[in-house]
């Protein structure tokens, strides 16, 4: 399995192909949302929502053989694409890897200017929540 750094480098090179064209970049991000596994309807509840300003995100996490498994969904396609990137980088990893992950791909691909400030805040909230889940599982493992 590739490391977090390797996966991030892959993503950066994929986005480099798109160049500066914002329109194709956004379409690409939306397409990435299609990679998300279907989200279980029973988990689509208030307590699993990470609230952004205009879009909703549902995120749940589980632990399998010491590794954290994420599942997520959103009511907007662009946000779905962003989550799918985070899941590609952080899913199925040990809690300590997730907690210490330096997600520099977001800055490297200039995500801030692509998605704007509202969604950037939402993205930061998603990362925080994923790390919090990892922290909770780590605490449980160490207990």
């Amino acid at each position: 399995m590739s490391t977090i750094k390797e996966v991030q480098d892959e993503i950066v090179s994929e986005f480099e192909i798109l160049g500066d064209d914002k329109e194709s970049t956004i379409f690409y991000i939306m397409e990435l949302g299609g990679n998300l596994k279907p989200f279980p309807e029973s988990e689509r509840k208030e307590e699993n929502i990470i609230k952004g300003c205009q879009s909703k995100v549902w995120l749940i996490a589980d632990e399998k053989e010491g590794k954290v498994q994420f599942q997520a969904d959103s009511n907007t396609d662009i946000t779905k694409g962003l989550i799918s990137l985070l899941i590609r980088v952080l899913d199925n990893r040990r809690p300590d890897e997730i907690i210490h992950a330096d997600l520099n791909f977001i800055q490297k691909i200039g995500m801030g200017s692509i998605i704007g400030s509202q969604r950037s805040n939402g993205l930061a909230a998603m990362i925080k929540q994923m790390k919090l889940y990892a922290l909770a599982f780590q605490t449980k493992q160490n207990a």
Binding site: K22, E23, C53, S55, T76, I78, I115, G116
Partner: peptide, 20 residues
């Protein structure tokens, strides 16, 4: 489609609208 997505796609085309 969610209005926020539509707005962001229009923005990529240089068109400023409001969503929400």
């Amino acid at each position: 489609m969610h209005p926020f997505d539509v707005g962001q796609m229009l923005d990529a085309k240089g068109i400023a609208v409001r969503t929400g």
